[in-house]
Design a protein around this nucleic acid. Structure first.
Lengths: 203, 203
DNA sequence: GTCTATAAGAAGATAGAC
DNA sequence: GTCTATCTTCTTATAGAC
């Protein structure tokens, strides 16, 4: 059966509907990060996206569904990011340090809003166990990827996983404190310490 | 002028009104921690405390004021805690390790709800800058106290502050990750690492 | 696919009787 | 000090025209 997609954009390869859907997701993603999930209303998404209420409902029946789509979107972004690191960085130790560098690259947003993964999970963990579980998958991607990198350094899996969790935790701590004190200097200094820690991990 | 407080309890030294006020604060404190500030409604506090709506309003005009009282209450608890550590523990290094031990002692709550200071600050940081600033004072108490302990170890103030912030950040990271994965084993292991780190800080 | 209008309920805040 | 009742606004969700 031949598919007819006459209205597809040649630039993006997305149909009109797919573009609207993506625009809703990207708008909601930003608002959920900057204001929090609970504190972002449906109307906020309507205003910020410029897409009318009923049309958003056409794509997502509930706000809950929007969050699920946002999480799926973030998961895909993380997968792409990790794949690019795998491609571009040959040494596992340098790959691990690239993770620390990511924190430094996001300095401004982290100082202002905290870590997107951590703050979302912290919010959902209080009252929405199913959604917390979905958002936890973002951590899983990094944890599994970091575990693999430590294994490539020559460590056994349990130890590699332990180090991966330690590194993730250090990143979360840095993000929380940098946000609490709105302090880029603290963030920079701690990322430096973290890279040194990576250098000192024995193969 | 002589004060007449005929209705004071002999056990607590609090008048009826002071007891009601305290009961509201303690109830709200627990709910804000377990469910989050935004996700706790005025009616939730009414139900959980057993004190009727109008009477809560008699003590606190707005939910905002309740939060301020909750933060003030927490600040006082932290001051008492730190004072007791000062009294009971002679060595500064042992005092610092007592801070790490506190995380272990709160293991169950942290795994279920995260750190009370960190999760509150993360939530308020998104949309309520004034309230975040108030809640930040909880971190200030620990930061200043830890800084003093590191100074007593013989370190200069800037370095002592840096180490205090590092320690606070490690604690936050542990709390976030233990909560994300609901993993007491990770928490125990990381607290152990943290105590070793304290032992290795050079005087 | 896109939009307007509105229903149904929950939220915070207030008035005033007892 | 304690309580009931209500106002107003905001929220999510839905119905249905175009």
């Amino acid at each position: 059966m031949t598919q007819h997609n006459g209205a597809m954009s040649e630039q993006t390869g997305l149909s009109k509907g797919e573009r609207s859907r993506l625009h809703i997701i990207e708008t909601a993603n930003r608002l959920f990060y900057e204001r929090g999930y609970q504190q972002t209303s449906f109307s906020d998404i309507v205003e910020a996206s410029g897409i009318h209420r009923g049309n958003i409902t056409y794509y997502f029946k509930t706000k809950n569904e929007i969050l699920q789509a946002v999480i799926a979107h973030r998961l895909e972004s993380i997968r792409c990011l990790l794949a690019s690191w795998d491609t571009e960085i040959p040494e596992p130790r340098e790959r691990i340090k690239r993770f620390a560098q990511m924190i430094l690259n996001s300095e401004e947003e982290i100082v202002e809003y905290g870590c997107p993964m951590g703050s979302l999970n912290t919010e959902l963990g209080k009252n929405e166990p199913e959604l917390q579980q979905e958002s936890r998958q973002m951590f899983d991607l990094f944890r599994n990827w970091l575990t693999r990198q430590f294994q490539e350094l020559g460590l056994r899996k349990p130890r590699a996983t332990q180090l991966a969790l330690h590194l993730l935790g250090r990143g979360q701590g840095i993000s929380v404190m940098a946000h609490v004190y709105h302090d880029p200097t603290y963030l920079k200094n701690e990322v430096l310490l973290l890279k040194r820690w990576v250098d000192d991990v024995e193969a």
